[in-house]
Design a protein around this nucleic acid. Structure first.
Length: 694
DNA sequence: GTAGGGTTAG
């Protein structure tokens, strides 16, 4: 019971109790204790029997004060015959505070008690249905209020739009919207919100044009929806137009509006403009910070994302939420910043943050991209709710880390749980087949994708098939497969074939693939090197050199190799032949020692992977100074013996580094995990998880 | 007394 008379002070504590206590109850009561006092007095004076007074108590406890919903329910329970106003207050309170589900039950009770719902009942109950995504109940309420004659009440219609859109029926919402006799700005905004919910960004912009023709003035809420859509569609022109509107109308104080403006600029690729605006904001909450951090993260400026995250906590003292952590983990995943990401994970646990589907999926992906499959599985297992994104992340994690068979086990497990795979899931599953060397399985998945799931293969799916076939040496079949593709093959597909031609020493199709690549786009240095390697492997040294000199003549620049290693939470970056690092002398002498050690263990330098501008005599020196070897050497001297070394690099691992790393892992007894631009290499005891195909 | 708003995952 919220109150018993005896424990509360006598009426004397409230001198001159007003005849009509409405203002006293609704405006002056700030705490449960205040309301207790008043309630005691009302009981004693029997004023509580006056329905209007009781409703003031209800409103205060159900809506105005925090954590007093149970109090409200007990007052409600004491009422002899609650009228529709009393029900309305309770339904509204339950919808917003405690539980929309209880609000629906209360609405049922209202009908059972033959209390007529009125125009104020329906917006609340529709909102409750909307929050529950209870479409059937929502439809019943819809039918009910049409029968009661509230079908063209603006408030009711606007909430109805919201309800249908939130339940995934944006087209029904639109029909309601189109059927309205008059549409105020809230009606338009409800429709914008509906399209936003369903990610129909184009519809938002189309509707915005119509709104402007209609003569209804848009407001700040409208601009938030439109800016969000501009960001997703990269419509900078409209975004800037709104930006000017905000400025000339002095609306910079609106925090949500400014946040969506920052978000729009970042998503349109104008990250620095976004940052300038962000810095100018007078007030910044966790959402604003998260928007800016994700802006950096999505623009691949991951170090800046992490720096800003630091600033948010250290200087601004703003606590991150689940959404912030998703972007932080994303940045860690891209950088391969294992320690920072692990710290983020323990922070999430320490703060008892909710492991939402997005956050869990981001964690799985983070561990996957750091080569820590077991942790991916652990997170996956600990999640309460998983969706197709979650499963896909795990399958992808296993596949890219060389556990193709296990990845497929999870794919079939997912099917067993009746979760519908989508196009990305199939990319992951096909990649798994490729890594596990399962040609027949790959073929049948590829066909089943269209036949059983109605998913049209995209260029990525074709690429996976070429990889599956090529890896197993079915070069001719892979070539025919490309020739018969119903869509135009791109350079990536041909490059996949070229890579398999090198492994299986197929000159003819290799040359053909190279021609196709060069026809489609300026060939990369890697393409020249692959072709040159094929010639070298079958002993056509002159052709090999010709291709290399051709590449030099075409002035094809090799993207500088870059490797990252994180030591004690700091990401160190190495370029090939790098002497920019503080400890470079120590690193170079370690390399010398390292090369000696592995040579005596059987390593032979492979000059075919030398830097192309290096002189013949210096080729060996050059290979030994590849960024990857610098990073490994640094890892050897900066981590305790036996620690796993994790490297991430921007290019594919070269043959020489691959050979060398295998031997380093044996000689130094270290597990070395290298993430290259395509896949993972887990080096251990002299061999690699990729089985020397990558 | 009622309605609409910003950041996130494969």
């Amino acid at each position: 019971m919220p109150c018993t008379l005896s424990v509360f002070p006598a009426i004397t504590a409230i001198p001159q109790f007003p005849e009509n206590p409405r203002a006293l109850i609704l405006e002056r009561c700030k705490t449960t204790k205040d309301i207790n006092q008043i309630h005691a007095h009302l009981l004693k004076t029997r004023l509580v029997l006056n329905p209007a007074v009781a409703e003031n108590l209800l409103e205060s406890t159900a809506i105005l004060l925090p954590n007093t919903m149970d109090y409200a329910l007990s007052i409600f329970g004491e009422m002899d015959e609650p009228d529709s106003s009393a029900y309305n207050i309770i339904i509204r309170g339950l919808t917003y505070k405690q539980s929309p589900h209880e609000a629906v039950l209360m609405f049922k009770k209202m009908l059972e008690s033959s209390v007529e719902p009125n125009e104020f009942t329906f917006p609340s109950i529709l909102k409750a249905c909307s929050r529950l995504r209870a479409l059937r109940e929502g439809e019943q309420v819809h039918a009910h209020f049409v029968k009661c004659g509230f079908g063209s009440n603006g408030y009711v219609e606007n909430t109805l739009i919201h309800m249908y859109a939130n339940c995934g029926r944006v087209e029904v919402a639109r029909r309601v919207f189109d059927g309205m006799l008059t549409r105020d700005v809230v009606a338009w905004n409800s429709m914008f919100a509906g399209y936003t919910k369903s990610e129909c960004w184009g519809e938002v912009l189309k509707l915005f044009c119509r709104m402007r023709e209609s003569g209804v003035c848009f407001d700040e809420v409208t601009m938030i929806s439109v800016l969000t859509a501009c960001g997703r569609l990269a419509d900078l022109e409209l975004g800037e137009w709104i930006s000017e509107h905000i400025e000339s109308n002095g609306l910079q104080k609106n925090l949500p509006l400014m946040t969506s403006l920052v978000d729009m600029y970042a998503k349109c690729g104008e990250v620095d403009t976004a940052r300038r605006l962000f810095d100018q904001m007078g007030q910044r909450d966790v959402v604003a910070w998260s928007a800016m951090i994700s802006g950096y993260s999505q623009a691949n400026r991951c170090r800046e994302a992490l720096n800003l995250f630091h600033e948010m906590q250290q200087k601004a003292n703003v606590e991150p939420n689940e959404v912030t952590m998703v972007s932080v983990l994303d940045a860690c995943a891209v950088l391969g910043a294992f320690d920072t990401g692990k710290w983020a994970h323990s922070y999430i646990k320490k703060k008892k943050m909710k492991l939402t589907v997005n956050l869990g999926t981001a964690l799985i992906d983070f561990y996957a991209k750091c080569g820590s499959v077991d942790s991916s599985i652990e997170v996956f297992t600990s999640m309460d709710t998983k969706n197709v994104y979650t499963w896909t992340a795990l399958i992808q994690s296993l596949a890219s880390n060389g556990q193709g068979k296990k990845a497929l086990d999870f794919f079939y497990m997912m099917r067993g749980k009746n979760i519908e795979p989508n196009d990305v899931t199939f990319i992951a599953a096909l990649a798994a087949c490729s890594h596990a060397g399962l040609v027949d399985e790959g073929r049948s998945l590829f066909f089943s994708m269209t036949k059983d799931f109605g998913i049209e293969p995209r260029i990525e799916h074709y690429g996976c098939m070429v990889d599956i076939l090529g890896r197993m040496g079915l070069i001719e079949e892979a070539y025919q497969f490309i020739k018969n593709m119903p869509i135009q093959p791109n350079a990536v597909v041909w490059r996949t074939l070229l890579a398999s031609c090198r492994v299986h020493k197929n000159v003819k199709i290799g040359e053909e693939s190279f021609r196709h690549i060069a026809r489609l786009e300026p060939a990369h240095s890697g393409d020249y090197i692959l072709l040159s390697n094929i010639y070298a492997l079958i002993g056509r040294r002159e052709d090999a050199l010709r291709v290399r000199s051709q590449m030099r003549q075409q002035r094809i620049k090799k993207a500088p190799g870059c490797s990252l290693i994180e030591i004690d939470g700091v990401v160190h970056e190495f370029l090939s032949e790098d002497d920019g690092h503080l400890d470079f002398k120590e690193i170079y002498s370690t390399i010398e020692d390292m090369m000696k050690q592995i040579k005596s263990a059987g390593y032979e330098p492979n000059p075919a992977d030398a830097r192309l501008d290096a002189e013949e005599d210096y080729q060996e020196a050059s290979v030994s100074h590849h960024s990857e070897k610098l990073a490994i050497a640094f890892g050897l001297i900066r981590t305790p013996p036996g620690t796993t070394i994790r490297i991430s690099k921007n290019l594919r691992v070269c043959t020489d580094c691959h050979n060398a790393t295998k031997i380093i892992s044996r000689v130094y007894n270290r597990e070395i995990i290298v993430r290259d631009r395509n896949r993972f290499h887990h080096f251990k005891e002299g061999s690699c998880s990729c089985n020397d195909y990558w």
